[in-house]
């Protein structure tokens, strides 16, 4: 055991400065504020499209086919004369459901698998991790694609496909975290006073393990929405009257030369949402990152 009269404690000072927060505060906070507002607004769109959208998504104004963005139709109209803005607003709910539901399912299953693997270690860990690695031999979008193709179209099927493809990531993060927490002295300290294993798990291991999972889920929400809309784009999505963002974008592809706006705006919506989620995720990571908040 190394003697720990560490000069690092002397350097209380530099330790704080190593944290990543000392950047331009106002600007960074402004970004995070903006990101939060975008996320809230898009969630509102998904929940209450009727109140926000200027038109019905099914209303076809045949006199205004393919009209470019203007004051009446901010995002223009499509080939059927539908208002693109309204379509984007209505399409948000399916896109968000795919993203959020798959993160919840994938995060939960992955989290449980990772916890079990990390907690028990040994042969269980070896087997579980081999299985996870096999799942990882197929890159995320291909795995989701294969599953979605096999299950056939349907919102739940897409959710499932995206969720399964995201399991390995969550499982590995949770496993790593649990393995590291498991080795902390306070866990052994608790064991040394005679705390039963289940209590150690519930009192010490879980509460100290899930913040990275939370961070990953936030960033994973972005990834899931990208994969989900990618599947829709490829035609694996739900075929219905109101397309989600991916499908909407795909439909617009045929009209690139005559109506750039049909594809551009749904894509912008995806990008803005994912971007905002990532900005928030980065902030969460900076806050929770064991490297920056390490107090040893």
């Amino acid at each position: 055991m190394k003697e720990v009269v560490n000069t690092k404690t002397v350097l209380h000072v530099p330790k704080w400065k190593f944290t990543k927060q000392k950047t331009n505060f106002s600007v960074e906070n402004l970004f995070i504020l903006g990101a939060g507002m975008v996320v809230i607004f898009i969630i509102l769109c998904a929940l209450f499209p009727k109140w926000i959208a200027p038109y019905s998504p099914t209303f076809m104004d045949t006199s205004l086919i393919l009209s470019p963005p203007n004051s009446a139709h901010w995002f223009g109209t499509d080939y059927f004369g539908r208002d693109v803005l309204s379509l984007v607003i209505y399409g948000s709910s399916d896109s968000l459901i795919i993203g959020i539901a798959s993160v919840l399912i994938g995060g939960l299953i992955g989290g449980i698998i990772g916890s079990v693997s990390g907690y028990f270690g040994g042969i269980i860990d070896v087997v579980v991790m081999r299985l996870i690695e096999i799942l990882m031999t197929i890159p995320g979008i291909l795995l989701a694609l294969a599953i979605a193709a096999a299950l056939g179209p349907g919102l739940m099927n897409i959710v499932l496909a995206v969720a399964v493809s995201s399991i390995p990531g969550y499982a590995r993060v949770m496993r790593g975290q649990l393995m590291s927490i498991k080795k902390r002295k306070y866990v052994e300290a608790s064991r040394s006073i005679g705390t039963p294993e289940w209590r150690i798990f519930l009192w010490h291991l879980l509460p100290n393990s899930w913040s990275p999972l939370l961070v990953m889920a936030t960033i994973g929400l972005g990834t899931s929405i990208l994969i989900g809309s990618g599947l829709s784009f490829l035609g694996l999505g739900i075929i219905k009257e109101i397309p989600d963002w991916g499908a909407l974008l795909s439909q617009g592809r045929g009209y690139l030369t005559v109506g750039w706006w049909i594809s551009t705006f749904p894509g912008l919506a995806i990008t803005l949402f994912v971007l905002s989620v990532n900005i928030i995720g980065d902030k969460l990571r900076d806050t929770f990152d064991p490297k920056t908040s390490r107090t040893r």
């Binding site: 002295k185 005679g194 039963p196 010490h204």
Partner: peptide, 23 residues
């Protein structure tokens, strides 16, 4: 039985911060 026995034998660690749950 071992857990019960631990009542009578306790431990103090080197790193007083690492050996307590920070939360």
């Amino acid at each position: 039985e071992l857990r019960e026995k631990r009542r009578n034998m306790q431990m103090i660690y080197q790193d007083p911060y690492g050996s307590v749950n920070p939360r």
